[in-house]
């Protein structure tokens, strides 16, 4: 038992160290790799907690495929992340600490880990163990729960994955050629650029919407953001035309 605890503590401290390294690291390549490491250590910890199925998934998805996908995404971006001021990291830290505190508040009343009499293990959980042997006759209760007892959940999860795929299909396209098409109104455009207001330069928001977002960036970035966003915020040429289809 005590060996287990030492192992668990060791793995948790590794996770903590890796997590901090990921936060502070600016080389994206290293970050991606460390995320893979994080997943792997996680998987090891799950094994130590006897959640073999979860560990398997974590290893396959977290350490395997998602690392590759992150790499593929990284190729499209800079290799280095911009320096993030500590001020901007305070908020995530606050949110983590607040959530953590809430969890700690609850810990006092949590059942002991592995307690056979805890509600999670005694009520429906125990029922699954009995019923699987009786109803389905397969040794792996996890599979029985996932695919049969709560099969509809898994259906939902499959759809979630499908929706993610569909999203990629919609936003990027499988051949990487999406995103060039531009929407345009079916009629005469009187918006933005062509409105007399815009010609007079009146009634334009003082700071363009994209630059508002950048209010917390350092000063010199702000001006750049303003420029680019204004050039982009402009409407495309609105050509009066018939039905787009």
């Amino acid at each position: 038992m005590s060996g287990h605890i030492i192992l668990d503590l060791g793995l948790i401290s590794m996770l903590l160290v890796i997590a901090f390294a990921i936060i502070r690291m600016r080389s994206l390549f290293a970050v991606v790799m460390l995320q893979g490491v994080y997943s792997l250590v996680c998987a090891a910890w799950f094994v130590s907690l006897d959640a073999v199925d979860v560990a398997f998934t974590e290893a396959a998805v977290g350490a395997g495929v998602s690392t590759v996908l992150m790499l593929a995404a990284m190729l499209l971006a800079d290799r280095q992340s911009d320096e993030v001021s500590l001020r901007r990291q305070i908020a995530p830290i606050i949110i983590v600490i607040a959530s953590g505190l809430m969890l700690f508040y609850a810990i006092g009343d949590m059942p002991i880990y592995g307690d056979a009499n805890s509600p999670a293990n005694s009520h429906v959980g125990a029922g699954y163990l009995d019923k699987t042997a009786k109803d389905i006759h397969i040794p792996n209760v996890v599979t029985a729960v996932l695919a049969s007892y709560r099969g509809f959940d898994t259906f939902g999860e499959t759809v979630v994955i499908f929706a993610a795929g569909l999203g990629v299909l919609l936003l990027l396209g499988l051949n990487g050629n999406a995103g060039k098409w531009q929407a345009c109104p079916n009629g005469v455009s009187i918006g933005l650029g062509q409105s007399p207001y815009a010609q007079l330069g009146e009634d334009q928001p003082k700071v363009s919407p994209k630059a508002e977002v950048a209010t917390n960036l350092p000063k010199e970035k702000k001006t750049i953001a303003k420029k680019t966003s204004q050039s982009k915020g402009r409407p495309r040429k609105a050509v009066p035309k018939g039905d787009v289809s």
Partner: peptide
């Protein structure tokens, strides 16, 4: 149903990879 999951997961993973890789 497990076959269905297999098919969906494998395809979606590939789709994401293709999408990013082809950009």
């Amino acid at each position: 149903v497990e076959l269905g999951v297999l098919l969906a997961v494998a395809s979606v993973m590939l789709a994401i990879f293709y999408a990013f890789g082809s950009r």
